[in-house]
């Protein structure tokens, strides 16, 4: 499959402080994002996610390494013409109205006037801001800024979209809407490279992920490859069982009202416990086997390093 984004041995360090001291942020990042996939870039704060994205955009210059966007060198204007970017905590020209703001970015791509107007209207509708078209951005809420930021990233109908923490600061409805748009972008054949702390969302929509810790990628691949199918424990919620009988069932127990939560770590015991509950006249409300989540993998890896 064609690589939409290719990074090889990316190194970046900064000199900070009154007496300049070298601080290495990226220690040889290598990754490849296939065309048409959603790629999740995970890492704790300060791991170097935003620095990587800034290197791709040419906002900072790598010390060493190679970046290619859609087959073009990363600093070329051709690469930027096919690229969309949403920064973390979007900062925009707050003296502009939403439609002026989108029109400004469309002009930078040399888009003609009538097309600019159509695109602006469509994008404002896509992010649910058509009623706020003439309101200055300084009056926008955090969620509205995130949405308008998202629409500017799509103004040039890009082939690849870089999203730095696109879901942070949004309410659950806003998160779902943005998630839906990201999935729609994939359906349209676009490549999405997103960094996020919200692992549940990443797990839901990403095809592949890379985990970055202290400037190094410690694991990358398909989510299904990273997460094992093995059942970690089974949660059973029961009612109508005497406390003495519960002790016999074993597992971690917590009770709330007449319902009791059992946590069974031994997979082989689940069936026998199931039968025992039924025979003692109890009622099973739910039985959920818990497999490993991306969060478990992520926390485990970060702790290990």
């Amino acid at each position: 499959m064609n690589a939409a984004l290719k990074i090889e041995s990316l190194h970046k360090s900064f000199k900070t402080g009154f007496i300049p001291k070298k601080k290495t942020i990226l220690k040889g990042i290598s990754l490849s994002v296939n065309a048409g996939e959603i790629f999740g870039y995970l890492g704790p704060n300060g791991a170097g996610k935003t620095t990587t994205i800034k290197c791709i955009l040419g906002l900072i210059f790598p010390d060493e390494g190679f970046i290619e966007v859609l087959g073009y060198p990363f600093l070329s204007l051709k690469a930027k013409e096919k690229l969309g970017f949403l920064p973390e905590n979007p900062y925009f020209y707050d003296y502009l109205s939403a439609s002026e703001f989108l029109d400004f970015y469309a002009r930078l791509f040399g888009i003609k006037r009538t097309e600019r107007q159509t695109k602006t209207r469509n994008l404002l509708r896509l992010v649910g801001l058509e009623k706020a078209a003439h309101i200055p951005l300084r009056k926008f809420s955090r969620g509205m800024l995130q949405r308008i930021g998202f629409s500017q990233a799509l103004i040039n109908d890009p082939d690849i979209v870089l999203l730095d923490e696109p879901l942070s600061g949004l309410d659950p409805i806003g998160r779902k809407e943005i998630r839906d748009i990201i999935v729609r972008l994939k359906e349209e054949g676009k490549t999405v490279f997103l960094s996020s702390h919200i692992l549940q969302d990443i797990e839901m929509i990403c095809d592949r992920v890379a985990i970055l810790v202290e400037g190094e990628i410690i694991n990358q691949g398909k989510i299904t490859e990273l997460i094992s199918e093995k059942i970690l424990f089974t949660e059973i919620i029961v009612s109508g069982i005497k406390p003495d009988d519960l002790a016999v069932l074993g597992g971690n127990v917590s009770t709330q009202g007449d319902r009791t939560l059992l946590k069974i770590h031994d997979e082989d015991r689940v069936e026998s416990i199931f039968k025992l509950i039924q025979s003692s006249g109890g009622k099973i409300h739910s039985l959920i086997p818990r497999t490993q989540t991306l969060e478990d993998i992520f926390v485990g890896m970060v702790k290990k390093t």
Partner: peptide, 14 residues
């Protein structure tokens, strides 16, 4: 300072 330059320079402009 306001970081508006991030989005601006990510567009095709020298």
């Amino acid at each position: 300072d306001k970081k508006t330059i991030y989005t601006l320079l990510s567009k095709p402009i020298h």
